[in-house]
Design a protein around this nucleic acid. Structure first.
Length: 191
DNA sequence: AAGCTGGCCTACT
DNA sequence: CAGTAGGCCAGCT
């Protein structure tokens, strides 16, 4: 894992219904560099972010952002300003941009447009990119630095089965249910 | 730098 | 239905 030597990160956490949501914000750019999936422990949620950086500090400075993330997790429709996220692609060794390649960036930008309560398939995202890299789409979403806010949980398989998720398919189903998506067994129910 | 690995897809059993 | 071989393609080593 590459560690950034030049930037310092502020990590804030919000607790909601027994789950801890963390966000990491760059001290130099004020942009959100990472979001954690909810964890049972505060330490785990913080570690999810801190492991990518050599220098970090825990404070409640950005707890409101973490709270917003928890609201989206619970299915609330929140208007989140995507410009708060660090979308820079920089593959140099000195910077630690959360997004490594243009391909990943494009996948995340397309995913960001999926409305709450709806789903898309990995295939449809590949098609928007003009190729058949559906498998690579899944891999790119697996590295999503901004889960929940960039709703990779709304991307499912072509047969409408749930597919994998960083926090486990159980969590993926839970978030989708919170958003009003109907699920039976391991599949999305169409209209 | 040629293989390998995946949050996948399709066709076929 | 469920399971899977073989195909795809980006990234990593």
């Amino acid at each position: 894992m590459e560690i950034d030597k030049n930037d310092k990160i502020i990590i804030s956490t919000h607790k909601e219904n027994g789950l801890y949501f963390s966000v990491g914000v760059s001290n130099s750019t004020d942009k959100i560099v990472r979001i954690s999936l909810p964890k049972q422990d505060k330490e785990l949620a913080v570690a999810e972010i801190s492991k990518h950086y050599s220098e970090f500090e825990v404070s409640d400075k950005y707890a409101d952002i973490a709270k917003t993330v928890s609201k989206v997790y619970e299915g609330e429709k929140v208007d989140f300003n995507l410009r708060l996220l660090d979308f820079e692609v920089d593959q140099s060794k000195h910077k630690n941009s959360p997004i490594k390649t243009q391909f990943e960036r494009n996948v995340l930008l397309i995913t960001a447009e999926i409305p709450s309560g709806q789903v898309r398939t990995y295939k449809s995202i590949a098609q928007k990119l003009g190729n058949r890299a559906y498998r690579a789409v899944g891999t790119a979403l697996g590295k999503n630095p901004f889960p929940i806010i960039i709703p990779c949980h709304r991307v499912v398989k072509s047969d409408l089965s749930i597919g994998q998720y960083g926090g486990g398919s159980k969590m993926k189903k839970e978030i989708l249910k919170n958003e009003g998506v109907r699920i039976k067994g391991n599949k999305i129910i169409g209209e």
